[in-house]
């Protein structure tokens, strides 16, 4: 998220006045993270038969889930910024496509979008290739993970655009007018005045989106991406033990989302200055 979030030099001193004890500075919700991790560890060590085997079986799925979530989220942050700025643009040739993108994507279920990107999009490309006689397009092969990341990013980008827009609109108009009258260009005012303030406003919903994205990444299991959910299903189909498999998978997701929530809380705290 870059430098805006770091406290200004000297700012940290201000923030911690009056000084509070170190124990109060520790986020109490870490306790919950600890409890869930302990619970998972307990299951894996005490009941090694299904639980340890499940963990070993799904571990590459955990990695895929993390990779898909992080890459999709990075794209979402950029896409959302452009979508949000586009929607606020005075130029109708920018505003209309941005609004169309948001309205259309927001109206289609994520699962349908993911299936479309993986099963329909490659055929579209191949047929366009046949029509234009371009061999490279006819031979187009979709990578399931890339298509999954693309599908998630495009869907969440639409939601994120609205969050960015709300954040930018929450900054009083006078700020933009003042920066413009100081001789800054539109983009300079955005970059140095509006966005640094907007980012603080939108941090909680952005963190919320990150957690939702991590959970919704389980939907990519339908497009043959071997993520945590799919690995769980594969394990269940052979070992017939849904209770153990889905308890373990749920705990693993919970550990990831709780850690992510702590990260978001920490970033929020660090960027809390001067407001």
């Amino acid at each position: 998220m870059g430098e805006q979030l770091k406290p200004a030099p000297g700012g940290s001193k201000l923030a911690y006045i009056p000084r509070i004890g170190w124990i109060k500075r520790i986020d109490p919700w870490w306790g919950l993270v600890l409890v869930v991790i302990l619970l998972a560890t307990l299951l894996v060590t005490a009941q090694a038969d299904p639980f340890r085997n499940i963990l070993i079986f799904v571990r590459d799925g955990i990695l895929i889930t993390i990779i898909v979530t992080i890459s999709a989220f990075l794209i979402v942050l950029v896409l959302g910024l452009f979508g949000g700025l586009g929607r606020l643009s005075k130029n109708p040739f920018i505003r209309f496509p941005a609004s169309l993108y948001i309205e259309v994507i927001r109206g289609i279920p994520l699962l349908v979008q993911l299936i479309w990107w993986y099963f329909a999009f490659p055929v579209v490309i191949q047929q366009v290739g046949e029509w234009l006689n371009i061999a490279a397009l006819v031979g187009f092969r979709a990578n399931p993970i890339v298509m999954a990341i693309l599908g998630l990013a495009i869907c969440y980008g639409a939601y994120m655009s609205e969050i960015y827009r709300a954040g930018i609109q929450s900054i009083p108009k006078g700020q933009m007018e003042a920066s413009r009258s100081l001789g800054m260009s539109y983009f300079q005012s955005m970059r140095h005045v509006i966005l640094p303030q907007a980012v603080r406003v939108i941090l909680p919903p952005v963190g919320n989106e990150a957690i939702a994205l991590l959970k919704d990444s389980s939907l990519v299991s339908v497009v043959a991406v071997a993520d945590l959910t799919r690995r769980g299903r594969e394990f269940m189909a052979v070992n017939f033990n849904p209770i153990e498999v889905w308890t373990m998978v749920a705990l693993l997701y919970l550990i990831m989302t709780l850690l992510l929530a702590r990260l978001v809380a920490w970033i929020e705290k660090r960027s809390h200055f001067e407001r």
């Binding site: 490659p122 191949q126 031979g139 092969r141 399931p144 043959a224 071997a226 799919r230």
Partner: peptide, 18 residues
């Protein structure tokens, strides 16, 4: 191995050449 929810999706992916 790539596993699919149902065999129709696997066949579709094969037709798509993936």
């Amino acid at each position: 191995l790539k596993t699919y929810d149902d065999i129709g999706l696997a066949m579709q992916d094969l037709i798509n050449g993936q």
